[in-house]
Nucleic acid binder design. Structure first.
Lengths: 263, 263
DNA sequence: AGATATTTGTTCGTATGTATT
DNA sequence: TAATACATACGAACAAATATC
């Protein structure tokens, strides 16, 4: 089917190509071996792995293979690679960002709706709010109130409209960051990330939402008041109302946008 | 000290190495660019990416860089790479197992407690149960009831004790698998995985739990009844009671095990 | 079943930029 | 400032795998 094989490979002279070619010595295996090596030697976050040259000798692999294996570990956020003389691969704690990104990949092809996300937010954010009592400080609350000034007024432009939506989400991210329950904290932040990435949300955020902004602002004020009084149930209640209010408006907007889009 | 294998170096003529060196156009960036490219072109699972040669031209990178980027995507389970004609990088659905594993890495160094996990289960499992109404079939319910026969009787041995705990969790995993909300479904299954991996749970599962077994069994029966009647609120209520009951017992056991351990 | 073409997999050599000393 | 060590990147050749004829 293809072009005539007129051109032979004209490089037979040296023939010093691959040597071992031991079948399936894939980078993946090397990565697993490195992980085991890390565990065996009880390396802690911050410790440095041997440099490439030594890894090449120790594991009997080429530089490219070693590099790919290290990249694999970096992709899992188990190591971070720095350049320079003190460079190399360092054992690292898995970062929130990376974990979020990797989990986001799982939902990449799933069809997530606003309804799906708010079904969880309604359950989790009130619990989170209640759990903050006794943990959150006056300074934290002041910082949150400071954040709210970015959307305590009607937006002057479409850009500001969108910015205000993200500032509101940042409010909730900050709250989640204060939560002492690591799982709950992660879940709430991940839901916010999903919201940010939903393309339907981008369309919604472009539309004027005076009700959403004003309503959200007042619910958040009630929430902060409850937190100041260290009243867990009042905090839970305020957040519950806040979430249900937001869900209803967002779902209505979703339907509206879809209606326009399908027209 | 290099000691090449006898052969001379017959590559003097070309000898042109790196050219661009535009800052640090790392493989990471290429991987991100490829991800964007996948989204822009609306590639679906099963679709093939351009082959290495074309990617080299299109993104102006060397083969090694392209390969590392592809390996990065492969490590994230976004593509799978095959050799041979019609080979190349194929867009792939991220498997539940892999996503769970990667997220598990994030919580590996965090100190998760039973309380943390049940704080979420209490919120999410009732919601999941309610959402099953209208989706779950009679066959599904029959299958679940079949599953329950594995712990409808007191265990005869410590092995069976442990087996019954895992069978109960399998019941909840099956429920979660039926949930039409992908985020809620994942969350519930991930929480169960965390429970399974908690070392404290292993100790608890070794101890006799007649109350936990009998109580859980009866709550699950009530749940299935509600689902048969398609009564969402009754299902939610049954699951809520079930979770609170389990949490109280598990936390008591956790305290007990810790007390013994610290003695 | 076997030959062939296509595509990735592996290794080597080399060049370059940069951060540390 | 110069030397050096190191990661980063490029290119070429060969090896292995595999679909197609």
């Amino acid at each position: 089917m293809k072009g005539p094989p007129g051109e032979k490979k004209p490089i037979p002279k040296t023939a010093r190509g691959a040597t071992s070619a031991r079948g399936r010595n894939r980078p993946r295996e090397l990565a697993e071996a490195l992980k085991d090596w890390i565990a065996e030697n009880a390396l802690q976050p911050g410790d440095r792995l041997p440099q490439e040259k030594e890894l090449i000798e120790r594991f009997k692999a080429s530089r490219g293979t070693v590099r790919e294996a290290l990249k694999l570990l970096e992709a899992q956020d188990l190591v971070s690679i720095r350049t320079g003389p003190r460079g190399g691969a360092y054992v690292k704690d898995v970062s929130l960002e990376r974990a979020t990104e990797l989990l986001g990949n799982y939902f990449f092809f799933k069809n997530i709706t606003i309804h799906d996300i708010y079904a969880l937010r309604i359950q989790l954010e009130p619990e989170l709010a209640a759990g903050l009592v006794g943990v959150i400080t006056e300074q934290d609350i002041d910082r949150l109130q400071q954040l709210m000034t970015r959307y305590d007024h009607p937006p002057q432009s479409q850009d500001e409209e969108r910015e205000q939506r993200f500032a509101e989400l940042a409010f909730h991210e900050t709250l989640a960051g204060l939560c002492p329950n690591p799982v709950l904290s992660f879940a709430c932040r991940f839901l916010i990330r999903l919201l940010k990435e939903l393309t339907i949300c981008h369309r919604i955020y472009e539309r004027p939402q005076p009700e959403l902004r004003a309503g959200g602002h007042s619910y958040q004020l009630r929430l902060l008041e409850a937190l100041r009084k260290e009243d867990a149930e009042a905090a839970r209640n305020a957040m519950d109302k806040h979430m249900r209010f937001a869900r209803d408006l967002m779902e209505a907007q979703e339907a509206e946008v879809l209606r326009q889009f399908l027209r």
